[in-house]
């Protein structure tokens, strides 16, 4: 006992304990890091459960294409660094999990198991892998806070070459296409811009600031909700359908009228 007490009183004891404690902390830390390297960030954000849940969902539904650690395979690209916004966009629009391979994963109704929670969880997992753009907040995409006039100009300068002037969509090369923008929610529009799905380029915050994005959302949603003042809008795709109507309705009706006017009364025989 006295020996221990004596040790304790040894001038070096304090340092020894400190070193011991440090070593212990270090070991625990190392163990933690071994278990799940980037988890500390998520831990700090209080989302450790989401990440773990997300990982297991990922393994179930996405791994076959995107690889065990989302590092990508020959069939699908890596998800490291695409960010939560990309996952939220892809899953909420039903594009992921992808079905049959094709030129482009189409928008479709999401799988039954996909909901806000599961999407958030996978998004958290993918976010934990290497950061990337985050899902925007409600205020960031609120059309009411945007300036539609400004947004329209930006929309025309950046988007309509693929999506058409009202977002009616258009064809790209090799069977790819820019979809119409009638269904995308404000959040999805924002996410599409920051993540640039497939053939679409990324419009990051230095190209188009978050406020400008909100204005663009304001323009897109205002125009698509507006009633067409001129009557039936023929798909809003312009001269192609108009020309079709000129012949199929206009000329056809007038030809029938001509036949009717010149028809002879049938002689009773």
């Amino acid at each position: 006992m006295t020996r221990i007490t004596a040790w304790r009183r040894h001038p070096l004891a304090r340092y020894a304990v400190l070193i011991l404690a440090l070593a212990l902390v270090g070991m625990v830390y190392a163990a933690f890091v071994q278990a799940g390297k980037p988890a500390d960030a998520a831990l700090a954000a209080g989302k450790v459960d989401d990440v773990a849940e997300g990982r297991s969902l990922f393994e179930k539904h996405c791994m076959s294409c995107h690889g065990t650690n989302a590092q990508g395979t020959t069939t699908a690209p890596t998800l490291i660094g695409v960010g939560a916004a990309a996952v939220d966009f892809q899953m909420s629009t039903g594009r992921m999990p992808a079905a049959a391979p094709g030129p482009q994963a189409p928008r479709k109704p999401p799988a039954p198991w996909v909901n806000e929670t599961t999407t958030r969880q996978i998004a958290a997992y993918v976010q934990s892998l290497g950061g990337g753009p985050q899902v925007p907040g409600a205020e960031q995409v609120d059309p009411k806070l945007g300036d539609a006039g400004k947004g329209g100009e930006l929309f025309r300068a950046n988007c309509i070459q693929c999506h058409n002037w009202v977002g009616a969509g258009g064809a790209l090369t090799q069977g790819k296409y820019a979809p119409n923008l009638n269904e995308a929610t404000p959040t999805q529009i924002y996410e599409a811009m920051v993540t640039g799905p497939q053939a679409m380029p990324v419009f990051n915050d230095t190209t188009i600031t978050p406020e400008e994005k909100r204005s663009m959302i304001a323009y897109i949603t205002q125009v698509r909700e507006q009633r067409d003042p001129g009557g039936f809008a023929l798909g809003r795709i312009g001269p192609v359908t108009e020309g079709l109507v000129a012949f199929v309705v206009g000329i056809a009706a007038l030809a029938l009228a001509a036949i009717w006017i010149t028809a002879k009364k049938r002689q009773k025989s």
Partner: peptide
């Protein structure tokens, strides 16, 4: 714009 066409 995409879908730019002239009149028929």
């Amino acid at each position: 714009s995409a879908g730019s066409q002239p009149d028929w």
